[in-house]
Write a protein that binds this DNA or RNA. Structure first.
Lengths: 274, 274
DNA sequence: GCTTGACTTTCCAGCTACTGGAAGCCTCAT
DNA sequence: ATGAGGCTTCCAGTAGCTGGAAAGTCAAGC
């Protein structure tokens, strides 16, 4: 029988850790002195401890290990458990590789430009939402904004409160400046169900827009004139990270331009793994 | 200005997380109502938040991100930081791949044998230690044990207390049963420095044995007769995990056989990445 | 003007797998 | 008998949140 220090030296597991394993019931000493509380371990216990260490090394949590060792699992159950671990690990490797790629990219950018890249791309998830919208052709770029103002007014008059930031969806397969096929969208509460007549027989219609699993987003501060830069950065990022564009982009108006403040816009591109 | 809930919806960052970032000083709202404590965020702050998310996605800790964003780091410093991250990520990928390989191996074993493998191999590190030992030829297998008993007696007579489990180092390049070139070793305190004469002019000598960075170990319970199995398992594991043997194996006697108890032995093989 | 419900605040606890430290008891060699 | 080192328990802290409770705030509807 070994005292905890000796056993720790033999097993190369810190005594603190052995006490912890005892505490959580994963691995307890063979006997404990009733009076002093001293823990005594036997050499034979090493094989269980080693099994624990080996399983830990496969990335199993202590809880999983405990279950594995206590229950008398069938070969099938064991098999399944490890299959799951296998999948987890594969995923982990993939993630790490993607991250590594992004870090490498950033290093290249810093080397080239001498500072941190100006834009940061973030991948998000959009959830299904109820909106009021109208799809139409915008002859000139400024019509995008005009349509938005018109829609906001109409909704206000109808006594409906927006529940989020308005945005525009650009349906043209290529970005263009004239006769854009766009949808002007304003999020509203779930129970809204209206049709609002606009000038010229056009109609704002309430409907539900599906969620999108992955959108690559970028935030742009400043006027709408130089929008090429963020679009270019986003496009490049998507390509470099092995995604592909799989839907129409959106521009979310986070802050409308005022005298004192510059506008803030978020560009979103639905993407999927190429 | 957005209240935390709105800003949370826009940024897709949980409000709890925003509060946490505020608490640790990483990302604070643009203004806080003095009376109610309500946090108010502006659209412009999104870019900083996005930068934080992007950096987090590169596996930087929040502390690292904070440093990166607060200090005005030179391009060189940035560059170095990301280089380090790059190395960390590479290492992570390698580790995960090695783990994945081991999991896959285990699945194969379970499929073949229908249960968990009998042995668990654990990689440990041995530290430098002071020992008393004698290297000699063991004509027959049982001499290994006899030599050990002899050494233990001699040390006891010399008034020296062992400080760890005794072991044997097998220097023969191939495992064999006769005329084995072995060293019988007993760990002692750092300050021991003796020579003990044994029968036939042989000598136990105190010296220091170097540490070993990596040893693959396996614990065997039971008689010395069927030692092939653990050796075979260990050898196979070493090969399968892309290690190579780079030193003489040791057998550590964790529990000497008694009438009631079976012996427990740990076999150790120094290894290095192939 | 009041109520209601959604939202916000702070504070506390918990998660994983330990690690460090303090205060006090135990063992062993001298 | 004494002192060193080892053992015990308990408490706190790590990272990055997440959940829950209790209490205060806000906006809309009546």
């Amino acid at each position: 029988m070994f005292k905890i220090g000796e056993f720790s030296r033999i097993s190369r597991v810190p005594a603190k850790t052995l006490r912890y394993y005892d505490e959580i019931g994963l691995f307890s000493p063979q006997s404990v002195d009733k009076f002093t509380g001293y823990r005594y371990y036997s050499a034979e216990q090493l094989s269980r401890l080693n099994r624990i260490l080996a399983l830990k090394d496969l990335n199993l949590s202590l809880a999983e290990i405990g279950k594995l060792l206590s229950e008398d699992l069938s070969a099938k159950a064991l098999h399944d458990m490890f299959r799951i671990k296998e999948a987890e690990l594969s995923q982990e490797i993939q993630d790490a590789q993607a991250r590594l790629q992004r870090v490498t990219k950033r290093i290249a950018q810093i080397e080239q430009e001498g500072h941190m890249p100006h834009y940061d791309i973030v991948v998000k998830t959009l959830t299904r939402q109820r909106v009021v919208s109208i799809r139409q052709i915008a002859p000139k770029p400024e019509d995008v904004g005009n349509f938005l103002g018109e829609a906001a007014m109409a909704i206000y008059s109808a006594g409906i409160t927006p529940t989020g930031q308005p945005y525009t969806i650009f349906y043209d397969p290529e970005l263009q400046d004239t006769n854009m096929d766009i949808e002007t969208v304003i999020p509203v509460a779930k129970d809204v169900d209206v049709e609002i007549e606009l000038a010229g027989g056009r109609k704002l219609i309430a409907h539900t827009i599906d969620g999108i699993d992955k959108v690559a987003t970028i935030v742009h501060k400043g006027s709408y004139d130089n929008f090429e830069a963020p679009y270019a950065a986003l496009g490049q990022w998507i390509e470099e990270n092995n995604y592909q564009i799989c839907g129409a982009p959106r521009e979310v108006y986070l802050q409308a331009p005022t005298e004192s403040e510059e506008p803030v816009t978020e560009i979103q591109y639905p993407i999927s793994k190429a």
